[in-house]
Simulated assay, not measured.
Amino acid sequence: MSSTLNVAKEIEQVVPQILQWRRYLHENPELSYEEYATADFVYKQLISFGNLIVTRPTKTSVLAVLKGHLPGDCLAFRADMDALPIQEETDLPFASKVAGVMHACGHDGHTAMLLGAAKILSTLQHVIKGEIRFIFQHAEELFPGGAKEMVAAGVVDGVDRIIGLHLFSMLPTGKIAICAGPFTANSDTFDLEIIGKGGHSSQPQDSINPILIGSQITNVLHQIVAQKVDAKERAVLAVTEFYAGSAKNIIPERVAMGGSVRTFSQQVREVIAQQIEQQVKHVVAAHGADYKLSYNDGYSSVVNDVQTTALVEEIIRQHFEPDTVLHIEPFMGGEDFSAFLTKVPGVFIGIGAAFDDETFNYPHHHPKFAVNEDALAIGLQLFVHTALTLNS
């Protein structure tokens, strides 16, 4: 443990640069699986630091490896890099220059923080035990997600622990949010097509109205969690899409529906999928119609390793103010960091990034989303102190 190693000056010197990096990335966002320029930018910065082995595990991702001069474990850090298909509506001087694309989830900040950590740690190779890997991941926002591809490419082979940070616009700046065990939800979707019999609205007896059937199915599906899931469990099922009809006097032949399912338990996940199939089948059969249903497993729940979470909490308490740690409950968001945690124990941590003026605080994926840039220094410090505590 390197509690005596003072890196405060190095952190202070790098903070202005991570702000520049973050603003550049914010101005030049790229969508999932299209992060070519972003990956090139990250690659060039990492090469310039020296002492790092820098590779491209996939076309739009980057991996940097710092091999310490002393034997020890392998620690990995992850930052995601992709933006969202959203038209930015902020008044920031560094707002997106790309029409219809925006960093509306903080990934520009994640990338900048990890670049800063790599820059500082690359100068400390002589005190590093083992190995530190800096994973700059593509396509977190779009299923099947870049994490799964990077795991398949072997980026966490031989890793002992992995740490991920996420800026949270609705948590106070200065707070670091932790949660042992399940942190994010399984995030699944379903698609349903109801096939009835079209006809004229004046002769409903000669038709099988899929809108009527779809309406009944919507009501039935929204009762599944309340009636079929143990009250001690947390789950959400929502029908969010319903497409039908082309004229007011025509009963359509088909209806397309879709929705979202969020769970923490694998058992509950399976129960809800089975219930959707069963309830749809019953309602459709009662009307003499037909259907096509697909249930799509999305990102699995992020389940933080209890031991790693405790280790990081202790590091936070050593290097930050006493009230910095914020214990939070699991939330229903989805995150593909779970793909790494299926292979390696680790922890996903929230960095508070809200403004003191609440009128500037918007949820993630909102056109006016922004983060308090003071939070970037906190994330940088956590990356660096974690590395030096666990690997030196």
Score class of each variant (00 low, 15 high):
329 E>F: 05
190 F>E: 05
256 A>W: 13
19 L>A: 06
94 F>C: 02
304 N>S: 01
57 P>G: 00
319 H>R: 04
71 P>K: 00
299 Y>A: 00
212 L>T: 15
94 F>T: 06
63 L>Y: 10
389 T>N: 05
119 K>W: 13
180 A>W: 06
186 N>D: 10
132 I>L: 13
164 G>C: 07
2 S>H: 11
287 H>K: 05
13 Q>A: 05
113 M>A: 14
304 N>I: 06
337 F>P: 02
374 D>S: 14
220 V>Q: 13
131 E>Q: 12
268 V>A: 00
232 K>R: 08
96 S>L: 09
267 Q>A: 15
319 H>D: 13
11 I>F: 11
302 V>G: 00
350 G>C: 04
299 Y>D: 03
224 I>H: 05
290 D>R: 06
344 V>F: 11
128 I>M: 10
53 I>C: 00
255 V>F: 10
174 G>E: 14
213 I>K: 03
234 R>Y: 07
245 G>H: 06
268 V>H: 02
348 F>S: 08
366 H>S: 00
317 R>C: 06
264 F>K: 03
165 L>N: 01
184 T>G: 09
316 I>H: 04
312 V>T: 03
103 H>V: 03
234 R>I: 14
334 G>P: 08
56 R>L: 09
1 M>T: 13
246 S>C: 12
192 L>N: 06
41 F>V: 04
263 T>D: 00
343 K>R: 10
50 G>V: 08
248 K>P: 08
191 D>Y: 14
283 V>F: 02
261 V>Y: 04
109 G>F: 11
364 H>T: 09
183 F>N: 00
272 I>W: 01
1 M>R: 04
250 I>E: 01
156 V>S: 09
326 L>H: 08
100 G>V: 10
186 N>I: 10
225 V>N: 05
379 G>N: 03
85 P>K: 08
216 Q>G: 07
125 Q>S: 13
144 P>W: 00
223 Q>D: 14
392 S>H: 00
381 Q>H: 08
192 L>G: 06
58 T>F: 02
392 S>K: 02
110 H>C: 12
94 F>H: 08
29 P>N: 02
158 G>M: 12
249 N>C: 12
362 Y>H: 12
123 T>A: 13
326 L>N: 06
266 Q>C: 11
187 S>T: 15
114 L>E: 13
367 P>K: 09
103 H>F: 05
235 A>C: 11
302 V>E: 01
328 I>N: 03
317 R>E: 15
282 H>F: 14
274 Q>D: 15
248 K>S: 10
376 L>W: 15
362 Y>N: 02
209 N>T: 10
305 D>I: 11
22 R>Q: 03
73 D>R: 14
